[in-house]
Design a protein around this nucleic acid. Structure first.
Lengths: 227, 227
DNA sequence: GTGCTCATTTGAGCGGCGCTTAGATTTGCC
DNA sequence: GGCAAATCTAAGCGCCGCTCAAATGAGCAC
């Protein structure tokens, strides 16, 4: 059963699975997803081209394993910064999402390519990505409870927040051909903070707006009569 | 110079370039980007495996051509619905963006994979995608002028709007492994309308909010003194 | 230690891929 | 009719994912 000899001069590698994952990630970092092949990864790990198939049923399964790693990293990154204020907390999580995409381009590209990993077959992926989504919902509900997001159906705000962070991340990672971004004056590495803050700002504005309207409605019986 | 014999029983195909593009799109629709190979496309068009290279220098160039087609379609889709009200206009354009992604998954997947088309080398792509971005900026400025988006630096709102529509589209197309979406009660085909409307709603709220604050500031000299 | 078992690894091989090249075929133009 | 250019074929190179029989060695019972 090979218990990690670490110095691998032997016939049995011992840590081949980990070595393959590491090599695969490096290959993606160097030349994109298309640069990742099991043969190259095997070569880097110092084994023959057939060896990987004892640890991964297919290239897709290796990609799924990398994707799961990525989701676990993302989850940790989003839980790293905490804030007392629920709105601020949501804000930090969103910014962490975008920062993760910028700093781990290779992971991000793999994570959202379900067609590359014969997804759905690999429950590890589901298990790794579920907490990320759940924490988002939790944060949106908390922010709503604190009156920093308009009341009512929370799902639309979950989807809105997720769309914004994921959209900006995708645009940064798979760039729009340099066509729009280059025309914007904003520096790339500040877009995450700026966009998430802007969204949070307008959400708070709308939340207060709604409260005012409601209070006013209560007082004067005239709905939507602001200003 | 072959002038499209249409009924192609001859040695020269005559419309091979178009036939290849059509076959390639069909292949992506059937099995994703990974299912597209020049050899298969050539076979569908009834020519040998070397023929495509007289019309496309590489697989990437064919993808770039498809991507350019996609951007032109997207541009047309976003200009289809017009509204008098600038805010409503921006809203419709955003919803058209998401609808395009849902209805033309194959195109959408190709358009935002710069690594698949040796992008930057193909000015056709730049030319096709630039108008889409420019129309977005124009609409944001118009909505700002009509007081439906907070004043000031418009770029943050351009980026916000783009991120929302692109993010939701990406999530719908490259699905988050069914992990989050399946837990939401919202029907997939209504997410586009809902999210874009929600964003526009909070933007309007924040815009009015800012106006109120400003007017109040003018009157009472007490900044941010609302409620 | 001896011998057994079985996961691991090898190496050869299959079909498919992107892309190149040499040569056959056709077209448009003079 | 004849010619140059464009188009297409056929063969081939190296790489790919994946499979399989055979070789290897680690762990375990004794």
């Amino acid at each position: 059963m090979a218990q990690r000899p670490v110095s691998s001069t032997s016939y049995h590698h011992g840590e081949l699975r980990e070595a393959l994952l590491q090599a695969a990630l490096a290959l993606v970092e160097e030349g994109g997803v298309q640069n990742l092949s099991l043969r190259k990864a095997a070569q880097r790990a110092g084994v023959s081209s057939g060896a990987p198939y004892h640890h991964f049923r297919s290239r897709g399964e290796l990609m799924a394993a990398l994707g799961a790693q990525g989701f676990r990293l993302l989850g940790r990154a989003m839980s790293a910064d905490l804030a007392e204020d629920p709105g601020e907390d949501l804000c930090l999580a969103g910014q962490a999402y975008v920062r993760f995409a910028e700093e781990h381009v290779a992971y991000f590209r793999i994570m959202f390519r379900p067609e590359l990993m014969d997804a759905e077959e690999y429950p590890e992926l589901q298990a790794a990505s579920a907490p990320v989504f759940e924490s988002l919902v939790r944060r949106v509900l908390a922010a709503q409870g604190a009156g920093q997001i308009p009341e009512g159906d929370h799902e639309r705000y979950v989807l809105l927040a997720w769309s914004v962070t994921h959209g900006l991340s995708s645009l940064l990672v798979d760039g729009p051909l340099g066509n729009g971004f280059d025309k914007l004056q904003l520096p790339r590495d500040q877009m995450g903070e700026l966009v998430v803050e802007t969204l949070m700002h307008v959400l708070r504005g709308a939340a207060h707006d709604g409260q005012d309207a409601k209070q006013q409605r209560k007082a004067t019986r005239k709905p939507r009569a602001r200003r």
